[in-house]
Amino acid sequence: MTTIINNNEIIIPDFRNTPLIDQVGTEERVSRFTKRSIKNEAKEAGLSMVLSMIDLTTLEGADTQGKVKQMCYKARHLHDSVPGLPTVAAVCVYPSLVSVAKKELIGTDIKVASVATAFPAGQTPLKVKIADTQFAIDQGADEVDMVISRGRFHSGDYNYVFDEIASIKNICNDVRLKVILETGELGALDKVRRASDIAMHAGADFIKTSTGKIKPAATLPVTLIMLEAIRDYHEKTGIMVGMKPAGGISNSKLALHYLIMVKEVLGDAWLTNRWFRFGASSLANDVLKQIVKLRTGRYQSNDYFSID
């Protein structure tokens, strides 16, 4: 696969020829990340970074204004008894609740992300997806998390998938577009790589693993493949693309291993919530517990951390 930059124009590669991936080798590389030992200052700094990268998420059919308001409060006040904590990066909700979240977060740096494009299955015509996205943007969403058409992708209709992403990107303007590949439905790491390349070339600001509705959601091997795709894309075009693993990351140790992976594959430039996010709901409290433990020396109980 080659992308030739000619007069600032990126030539779109033939996505049938994206790089190949060996699964066993990928898992062995991942095991090197998980064997990194993160202690003391590195641990505390890392945990704080994890908090600042969380997209606090609720995506339930049962979501209400009340639920979203509670979550937004938590986003702003992660654990007030510990001074100096960051806020999360964003909250992530359905389009119908964007305006609620937006109002709750006035005066903060916390972004409001909205899923869109007939999340999570994406099985609607493009014009419905565009309308869905436009609604979220009109409601004030800072970021849009779209899903790709996995069915079309499996059919080999890569141009369709590409065009669809490009169409959504086209209406996003300053709104940052995260493209969800739903890797749990792709079935092979080669396809994760291919979908990543399609999304980035079509204009994704972020690529994201999962909706959270399908298992497996984010895993380290899948994320590694996406990070390597980002690295190669950056190498060829100079364009940075963000990464968001979502779903299945609920403890601090695992989150820190993700950060190690980002650091070693992409470098320190990506270690900020502008370029890396965790899509998670229960991760924040586990990180908070670890931070309190580090500061007090006591192992913590869930009873001391608010659930919102």
Binding site: Q23, P216, T219
Partner: peptide, 13 residues
Amino acid sequence: HPIEQIGGAGSGY
């Protein structure tokens, strides 16, 4: 030679 385990019993990827 590696044996890919995707789709094997209990394995995600």
